[in-house]
Amino acid sequence: MKEFDYIVNDELGIHARPAGQLAKLAKGYADTVITITKGDKTVKATQLMKLMNLCVKQGATVTVKVEGPQEEEAFAEVQKFFNDNL
């Protein structure tokens, strides 16, 4: 398992557009699970509505975990996604 913490920079937080793109990205990895944790709540990156419902605002910290056979590849892609879009 690999993980990283990320402070959200986007003005609107994790809003519909990046959440949708992230869900799409996560669906590309069938057996590798990507989760997002904020506080005591954890959701899978594929759970678009639940992810938005975390209500991650600008300045909030989330923990992203990646686990599964394509761990390395998925980790790199997700990290890049956060840096580029959030």
């Binding site: 519909a16 557009r17 949708g20 869900a23 799409k24 594929t46 759970q47 678009l48 509505m49 639940k50």
Partner: peptide, 10 residues
């Protein structure tokens, strides 16, 4: 986004 909501697993 609407299409993705429609597909949302939860």
């Amino acid at each position: 986004t609407h299409a993705m909501f429609t597909e949302d697993e939860d």
